[in-house]
Simulated assay, not measured.
Amino acid sequence: MRDGIEEDAPEPPEKTHRPRLVYPFEAAPETGSGQAIEVAPGVLWLRQPLGGSLGFINVWAIADGEGWAVVDTGLQTKETSQAWRAAFAGALGGRPVTRVICTHLHPDHVGLAGWIARKFDVRLWMTRLEYFQCRMLVADTGREAPEDGVRFFHAAGWDDDAIENYKARFGGFGKAIYQMPDSYRRLSDGETFRIGDQDWRVVTGQGHSPDHACLWCPDLDVLISGDQVLPRISSNVSVHPTEPDADPLTDWITSLAKVKAAVPDTVLVLPAHNDPFRGLHARIDHLIGGHERGLGRLEGKLSEPKRAVDVFGALFARPIGPDLLGMATGEALAHLNCLIGRGLATRETDGDGVNWYRAAG
């Protein structure tokens, strides 16, 4: 079962057997306290506060000479910056940050990257697509909703009230992100770089974000997975107005298979949400299987033409209200575009600009 979609998105309708994962830590660091737990030699686990049902994001500090390399940061909020100050003075022992590494562009991961990088005069490390797309999205902050976006959601079947809500909320991405650094150090898939006494290898994935970086340390047998592999929830995989014909679900499934092939099953997985766990390969198989089952259910619903908003029942168990409409629409379109890419569905646009999907043949 895909227990949910990241950021409190809706659950799938079926309840399938969940793989038995191993959670080696009985306790977690208190959220926002500046406390830390050592999960591997020189690797500290901290939690920073988030709003909503998730409640927190896991962030990591890796011993790096006389200081710490920080991986992911939390949102730009007063509470999170206070939590980091407590950590700098407490768990990190007053030692400086040597670099800030962000797995991907979402605000809960990159929100305070600019603040920490400037505070310690250090470089931000990200993949190229994540850095530049983040800068692009931040630049939209405060801008009016574009007509392309209005057409996109109208085509998905949104009514006038939903589109007005989209217009009112558009341009908020950058509000949770401190000013991004004007330069960065590029992370590239397959590269190995040293943090402290260990080598770390970059394993990238697509679908949840443009070029998400996981960090694998073979010597420590640790994988910092970000949102690429989560133990109890499944990261949101959505089509967005900027690329309406994208097929991120195929990218996501391919990326999960790539991580499974590249990283051994023995690793301790350090995810951005939920708790560290063992059982990487079983969890990846389960995530892929959940999406494949969703695609099968969805294809079965397309014997008659459907809009994107008509297929939520095939993918999610609970009703979709206004708070989840955008995420559910993006995820539904990801599944529909995947079926089209596999030759299993077709799309036609009616005279009002609304897209209708049906099973091929």
Results as ranks from 00 to 15, higher is better:
256 L>C: 07
23 Y>F: 15
157 G>H: 07
221 D>G: 09
328 A>D: 04
157 G>Y: 06
334 A>G: 08
346 T>C: 03
176 A>P: 00
77 T>F: 01
1 M>I: 12
228 Q>E: 10
91 A>E: 06
327 M>P: 08
98 T>K: 07
103 T>Y: 00
295 L>K: 02
27 A>C: 01
136 M>T: 13
82 Q>I: 13
21 L>D: 08
62 I>R: 06
44 L>M: 10
163 I>T: 04
354 V>H: 08
321 G>A: 12
21 L>R: 04
274 N>F: 12
60 W>I: 07
175 K>S: 13
119 K>L: 14
171 G>P: 06
301 K>W: 14
128 R>T: 04
188 S>E: 03
244 P>R: 10
262 A>W: 02
237 V>A: 15
277 F>R: 02
25 F>I: 01
306 K>R: 15
323 D>N: 09
80 T>E: 00
76 Q>L: 14
327 M>Q: 15
215 L>D: 06
308 A>G: 09
189 D>Q: 07
77 T>R: 00
187 L>E: 00
224 I>K: 11
317 A>T: 07
346 T>D: 15
185 R>L: 05
241 P>V: 09
345 A>I: 07
321 G>M: 05
34 G>R: 07
231 P>D: 10
245 D>I: 06
339 L>F: 09
80 T>I: 06
71 V>P: 04
304 E>N: 06
338 C>Y: 03
92 L>N: 02
347 R>I: 06
357 Y>M: 10
329 T>V: 07
240 H>V: 14
312 F>D: 08
165 N>R: 14
293 R>Q: 13
288 I>Y: 05
88 F>P: 05
149 G>C: 13
10 P>F: 14
